[in-house]
Simulated assay, not measured.
Amino acid sequence: MGLRNTAKRVRLATVVAAVSALSFVVCGCSFIGGRPAAAEIAEVHVDSPQLRDGKPLPREFSCKGKGTSPPLRWSTEPLSAAKSIAIVVDDSSASGAAVHWVIYNIDPRTTLLGEDASSDPPPGSSQARVTSGKAGYQPPCQDKGNYRVSVYVLNGRVPVKSDRTLREILQDVATQTIARGRLTAVDIE
């Protein structure tokens, strides 16, 4: 039992560090992984037919409902340097931080994903193992929390290897980000 709790704490610490690194680098607040602090990051408009910024996460996208990934749309000015898209769904709640979905290497011409895209991801894309240790969308369960759905436009592709950690993948996303946008749901309906 002690080993299980230690492993859980180590995994949580890794997730918190990875999400923090991604947040600092993408906001231009730090110099990690070769990205200058003053790097210009273009804006991506993110919306969804079923999610509203600042409103509750619909129950169907949580473990209390169908547990499917939400439908998303995004738009940005044409970026000739765009080589791929990454989407990260994470949260901060009373029980700590967690990453629920990381899908990356999406074709840069893609501007939408339908509901439950994690079950049928776009061709050529990959999904990381998230906080739970599983790949694909792992629905949030905490009633109270901030659930962030972030879309990143990258100037490269994230290397795909079976032994890559969540932290390594998030670091690659952070260092290659040239545009970003986010929707934040507050609590679960």
Rank of each mutant, 00 (worst) to 15 (best):
R180S: 15
S119M: 05
A174T: 08
G67S: 10
F61I: 08
V102D: 03
Y104R: 02
Q138V: 14
A18D: 02
S84C: 03
Q176I: 01
R129E: 06
L112W: 07
T177G: 10
F24Q: 10
G67F: 07
I103F: 03
S125I: 00
V44H: 13
V173H: 04
S118R: 05
K83C: 06
L166I: 10
D107A: 09
R9L: 00
G124R: 03
R73H: 13
Q127H: 10
A135D: 10
D107W: 00
I103R: 02
Q142G: 08
S62A: 14
S75G: 14
D116H: 10
N146E: 13
Y147M: 08
S125K: 01
A86L: 05
A21R: 07
K144V: 11
V10M: 00
T6V: 02
I106N: 04
S92Q: 12
L170R: 06
S30W: 07
D47A: 08
D90R: 11
S92C: 09
V99R: 03
K144E: 14
L79S: 06
V149D: 06
R182P: 09
D47P: 06
S20V: 07
P56Q: 03
L57D: 04
V102H: 01
V153I: 13
E60C: 14
R109D: 07
H100E: 08
L166E: 11
C27A: 15
A135P: 12
R182Y: 10
R59H: 12
N5M: 00
K66I: 04
K55N: 10
P108E: 01
A21Q: 09
E43F: 13
E40T: 13
G133R: 04
T6D: 00
D120P: 01
V160Q: 11
V153W: 01
F61Y: 15
L51C: 10
G33P: 08
A97K: 10
S48D: 06
V99A: 08
D91I: 01
I85H: 05
A17C: 03
L112M: 13
T110P: 05
A179F: 11
P36G: 09
R73C: 12
R59C: 11
C63K: 15
A7E: 03
I188V: 13
G145Q: 04
S84T: 02
S23L: 03
R35T: 15
L51N: 06
S118L: 08
V99L: 06
V186K: 09
V26N: 14
V15C: 10
S23G: 13
P140T: 04
L113M: 08
R148K: 12
G181M: 09
I32V: 11
L112Q: 13
L154E: 05
C29W: 15
S118W: 13
P122L: 06
L72W: 01
V10C: 00
V25P: 09
G181K: 03
V158E: 03
E77N: 14
D47H: 12
V26E: 15
G114L: 08
S119C: 04
